[in-house]
């Protein structure tokens, strides 16, 4: 799967849309590079949005970050079907995140000029925004449940050291190979790194179970 991945040493402007998507799907260092590039390549949307200063800088940056996270999952889920540019696909998500930010802040409103700018950016998307954002609408319906789960899981994760959480995240979420994990964290070999990752997994699972026993409201995260 990784035999046709573009080089990590190219400048960001040298990657095509297909390159970036394949890098995201590959995970690990390639995904990190792709997101670093995407963050910078699309940042002009943030600058333009900040220009229409009805939305505060922090709100825009939060919306942008959330958009990138949703964008990542959407790519992995195969939501981008190459009917438009990757940039326009992202613009659709960013626009919805801006609207979400406004919904949660009744004192602010979406400037007409910003709305028009974001709409134009998304014009080339050739994708039905409803298909991308259906998940976000459902999420808003289960907001309370999601908030409780989030709080409880963060509490359970708090029992592990930050480095331990980093190791788990790199191995299980960022798709690091055991060999790369060993190199990054200084383990003797891939075998040791893999064993460490699974030991830490057991530790986190134990922490989750103990929290469920300790706090009834957190039983929502337990089987």
């Amino acid at each position: 799967m990784t035999n046709s991945l573009p080089s990590l040493h190219k400048p960001c402007s040298g990657y095509t849309d297909d390159d970036l998507v394949s890098m995201i799907k590959a995970g690990g260092g390639h995904s990190r590079k792709a997101f670093n590039c995407l963050y910078e390549l699309y940042f002009d949307m943030v600058r333009m949005s900040v220009k229409y200063h009805r939305l505060e800088k922090n709100h825009i940056l939060d919306a942008y970050t959330q958009a990138l996270l949703s964008f990542h999952t959407s790519i992995l889920a195969g939501k981008w079907e190459r009917r438009g540019t990757l940039r326009a696909f992202f613009a659709i998500i960013f626009r919805f995140k801006c609207i979400d930010t406004i919904r949660s802040n009744p004192t602010i409103s979406l400037d007409a000029a910003l709305e028009e700018y974001l709409r134009k950016e998304a014009e080339d998307g050739a994708t039905n925004p409803e298909e991308i954002m259906i998940g976000d609408e459902e999420h808003s319906m289960e907001n309370d449940r999601a908030e409780i789960r989030k709080r409880c899981l963060e509490e359970a994760s708090g029992e592990l050291q930050p480095r331990e959480m980093e190791i788990l995240t790199d191995y299980f979420v960022n798709n690091y190979k055991a060999k790369d994990l060993a190199e990054k964290y200084g383990y003797k070999n891939a075998g040791v790194a893999k064993t460490t990752a699974y030991n830490l997994k057991n530790k986190l699972n134990r922490s989750i179970r103990e929290l469920c026993e300790k706090k009834p409201e957190c039983r929502i995260i337990c089987p």
């Binding site: 789960r149 899981l153 963060e154 994760s157 959480m165 788990l168 995240t169 979420v173 989750i208």
Partner: peptide, 13 residues
Amino acid sequence: GEVAFYEALLLHR
């Protein structure tokens, strides 16, 4: 259990 485990990692990430 896997869902809870992975969700915790995603939140952290």
